[in-house]
Design a protein around this nucleic acid. Structure first.
Lengths: 350, 350
DNA sequence: GGCCCCAGAGTAAACGATTACATTCCGCCG
DNA sequence: CGGCGGAATGTAATCGTTTACTCTGGGGCC
């Protein structure tokens, strides 16, 4: 037996009737009450209260063309992405910022190619005012889809195709991957290490490339046998570590492009009988506390403020949506992509 | 400079005009085309194609009172909940099921008390057709809010207040926590362990209580000094383990109510010089692969199919929303809460 | 004291779809 | 050959808001 059929919610009409005013006046009060005299406004507010009136968003959207909702689009060709705490945190920051501005968060998880069409349709359907896009790989068509649907976009992480016209224009928020990597490697040098290896993430992802470039900024000669490519999983980290140990048994430090890979690598190093940090010093990247603090030993790593990045993405997008400033207004700073700083957190592994 | 102002999307009116039919006919074709003759329908479809028409959801919702959207409400008084891979997986299952039925997922993260009012307003506003609610604690008013807003609800995990009238009626999806716990403890018994301890989750959460009850089903005498309460974090697991070791230094096995706590406990056991599983056998709960497979040694644990649970939640809710079957139709099975089975996965720790 | 003007309130026209109901058309049966 | 019925199509009401525009009344200025 289905529950009680939801009683039809009161409409603005009902509120107006109860307060003895016109629908227009009631509407004005509900939306801030500018231009309505005190006592009248009060009557309307009372009626709203008594009836438990809540505006019907569909009707409102229909006329204002505003949804007060933004989409978070997540490409997850591999299962990993969404389960990644990295992403979860970022969504949390986004949610905070959005609800602070009374916007809703619509989550779009896309699996394969077929889903892209669905997402495109959805964005084009005008369900949301803007989109925050996370895609793992270089060739992801999602951003293009959104753009051509006329939906403003901010992407998470630097896009690869900055050389395109569209790429250059695309707003993004990223952390200072390259600078963070430099700090990590300098720290290892400071500890007196001289055979420093690197486990990179998949090199079709800009973050991986940037971290690798940071490594090379400090160690231009560090090449070939001291670099291995992982896949941002613990298992991949272990495999890469094994490969490095075989090729360069004398390495005395590793900078690893993610904490998760680092946890796998630590595992492998222990298995190979290396003591950490005495024999091999290890530095990770991300500062995923649930990982970094609980490895054995606790991981020295490059911290990035993930939640803040999410917040910034949302803020940037919302600003994009604001109506262009009136002529006389104080000039707002132009909208631009954001790169947040990183910070080395020293624990026991290096 | 803002991008190109989004060109106004074509309306159904435009499609109708181009196809040379009335709006009504065009609408019928767009919604499945029942009762429209072949050639006409074809003309309409062509017009849709050429104009790139996408129905305006707001207008549609206004008249049908259907949103094709459901809310996922997550109480996260502590930061932990959302970052928990457990939850992420469940959302993934939900998303799969929803998009398979062309429904959208609206994510509502609620922080403190103040947020509850916001969520209540949102649900009452008729933005969504139903809600999936995850709350950590017993006294969470979210379910009540939704119910009183007339929005159908399915909750994740058994609610505590099953004794209430409302509680009994509330639909939920949970895994067989109690049975899983029994299997875990029986496994330890089978290994010849006799001093078996338990680290429980916070006992204001039903899942924790059920797992504890499963433990007691098998070991009714297992009491006092062999039970400690954790908080589902690795750190809390470590603390609880330390307490147990102090109170009962002779314990030879632990069943721990979550993998994350287990990882902390393993850490503590090693620190205390215990070999695993020789000195102390350890069984976890959840089978969070990213945790359980990478502990040292890999963790024996109780597997639950989290993604499937998410899928089931969504399916159950969608079924609730279906119009009541017409009189003559084959009787559909009554809607009921679901308890999914668990399965012991044996790795190296026990 | 008359006028102008403006702020405050009301009227009504959108917004873009769905759908009950009216109309038309056609084939078929008696 | 006329009328009947049902399927295909069109007409128009409706959903609940916002907002441009009109109307009203009263205060300030000359």
């Amino acid at each position: 037996m289905p529950g009680p059929r939801p009683v039809s919610r009161p409409t603005l009409e009902a509120v107006a009737a109860r307060a003895g005013v016109s629908r227009a006046t009631a509407s004005r009060v509900v939306n801030g009450g500018a231009g309505v005299r005190g006592p009248l406004a009060e009557r309307v507010r009372k009626a709203v209260e008594e009836l438990g009136y809540v505006p019907n968003q569909a009707a409102r959207t229909l006329v204002t063309r505003r949804n007060e909702a933004i989409a978070v689009v997540v490409a997850e060709p591999e299962a990993r992405f969404f389960a990644d705490p990295f992403f979860a945190r970022q969504v949390r920051g986004i949610s905070r910022e959005l609800t602070a501005h009374d916007n809703q968060l619509v989550l779009l998880l896309t699996g394969g190619e077929s889903d892209h069409e669905r997402v495109g349709r959805y964005l084009a359907g005008g369900h949301v005012d803007g989109a925050l896009i996370f895609s793992l790989h270089a060739d992801d068509p999602l951003t293009g889809l959104a753009g051509q649907a006329g939906v403003p976009v901010v992407v998470g992480g630097r896009p690869t195709w900055q050389d395109h016209d569209q790429g250059r224009r695309t707003l993004y928020v990223d952390c200072d991957n390259r600078g963070g990597a430099r700090d990590a490697v300098r720290h290892l040098l400071g500890l007196g290490r001289r055979r420093i290896a690197h486990i990179a993430g998949p090199l079709d992802q800009p973050a991986s490339v940037d971290r690798l470039n940071g490594f090379r900024d400090v160690l231009p000669e560090g090449g070939g046998t001291l670099i291995a490519e992982g896949d941002f999983t613990a298992e991949g980290g272990a495999r890469a570590m094994a490969a490095l140990l075989e090729r360069s048994p004398d390495l005395d430090a590793v900078f690893i492009a993610s904490d998760l890979m680092a946890s796998g690598a630590l595992h492998m190093l222990r298995t190979a009988g290396r003591r950490i940090p005495q024999d091999v010093a290890v530095v990770g990247f991300d500062d995923m506390i649930s990982v970094a603090e609980w490895t054995d030993p606790p991981l020295t790593t490059v911290h990035q403020d993930i939640e803040e990045m999410g917040r910034l993405m949302a803020r940037l997008l919302l600003r994009t949506l604001e109506p262009p400033a009136p002529a006389g207004a104080p000039a707002v700073p132009a909208l631009a992509s954001i790169v947040t700083p990183t910070r080395l957190v020293v624990r026991a592994s290096a």
